[in-house]
Design a protein around this nucleic acid. Structure first.
Lengths: 159, 159
DNA sequence: ATTGTTGCAAATCTTTTGCAGCCTG
DNA sequence: CAGGCTGCAAAAGATTTGCAACAAT
C-alpha cells in the first residue's frame, strides 16, 4: 500500500501532534517517520536503527523504541507482528488494510476488504461491545511459493 | 467455548499422537493438557506453571515451553497473543473461533463467524494464494466496561 | 530555566537451549 | 540400554528503564 501523501504534509501533521501533546520538536522523531515513509516496507525497530545508523553515527535503538509507540498512538504508523521476532512498522495509510503473510517465504502482502470490516462490527454489536480496532493476519502460501511447490511434488495440504 | 469432549478421549488421542511421532509417554505432557482442559480459560505458560506447581514441587517452566508447541502443532491446543505479554493457550475446540479482547478489563470473549471465514478464503483466492490459517483479534470495549464508562462520563471515542 | 529528548548501559521479560540425570519402551 | 523427557541454570532476543548530558521553548 503506497502512501501518496507527501512527506512534508505528514511532517506538518507531526508538528501539530507534537504541540498538542506538549512535547518538543526532535530530529529523531522526524527522522524515524521519514525512514519508514521512504523505505515503504514493513520495518522492524532494528531495521530502522540500521538505516538511521548509516547517516547518524550515534543514534540509539532505545530512542526508536521510545518514539515508535508515540507515532503509532498518534496514527502516523501502524504495526503488525507476524511471528515472535518483534513488531514491524509501516506508514499508516488512509484506507485501512490487513495483511497476508506467506509462511514459506515471509512475504507480506496487503489487502482491503470492507465486507469483513462490516461483519466485524456486526459481531461486536451483537456482543454489545464497541469495536476499537482489530488485527487480522492471514497465514498463506503465496502464489510464487505454490508454483515452486507444484514444480516438485504435488503434495502438502494444511488446515 | 467450552470443550465437551471428555478429557479421557483427548488423552487417548494424545497417546496416538505421541506414538505417531515416535515419542515416549510423559507425565508432564498429559498434565499440561489436563490443566488447560480443566482451567478452561486462556492460560499463559506461567499460569500453567503456577497451577502445576501447586501439585508438583519440581515442575519446570522450560518443560512447559517445550511441550506447548507440540500440543499446538498436533492440534490439541490453540494459542492467541493479545498483547506483548506472551501467548495464551486454550484447548482446541472442534469449531474454529476467533477472539475479542477488551482493552479496558482484559476479558477475552470468543465468537464464530462463518461469513468472515468464507471471505478470507475469497481474499486469498483472489491473490492466488492458499490460506493456511489466520489470526483475527478484535480489540473492543466490552459491554460491562461500556456501562461503567457511561455511568461516569458520556465521552471517549476511538478509532 | 524548565522540561522534553537522547545515547548508553543495565535491567526486564518471555522464550530457548545446554546439560546431566531420569524414565520409558 | 537407547533415546526421549525433565529440571535447572544459563543464554538469547526484544523491549524497557535509569541516568546524566543535551537541546528546544
Amino acid at each position: 500500500m503506497k502512501c501518496k501523501e507527501p512527506l512534508e504534509y505528514i511532517l506538518d501533521r507531526l508538528q501539530l501532534s507534537v504541540r498538542k501533546n506538549n512535547l518538543k520538536n526532535s530530529k529523531q522523531r522526524e527522522l524515524i517517520l521519514k525512514v519508514i515513509y521512504e523505505n515503504g516496507g514493513h520495518l522492524s525497530p532494528e531495521d530502522i536503527f540500521g538505516i538511521i545508523r548509516q547517516t547518524c553515527d550515534n543514534a540509539s535503538l532505545s530512542s526508536i523504541y521510545r518514539i515508535l509507540p508515540f507515532l503509532e498512538k498518534e496514527g502516523f504508523v501502524n504495526s503488525i507482528e507476524v511471528d515472535r521476532n518483534g513488531k514491524r512498522y509501516e506508514i499508516a495509510s488512509e484506507l485501512h488494510h490487513d495483511h497476508m503473510y506467506c509462511l514459506e517465504c515471509g512475504k507480506i502482502e496487503e489487502f482491503c476488504n470492507d465486507e469483513i470490516e462490516k461483519l466485524q462490527i456486526e459481531v461486536t454489536d451483537a456482543h454489545h461491545a464497541k469495536l476499537v480496532t482489530h488485527d487480522m493476519l492471514l497465514y498463506v502460501v503465496c502464489e510464487n511459493c505454490l508454483n515452486k511447490q507444484n514444480g516438485q511434488s504435488k503434495t502438502k495440504h494444511s488446515r
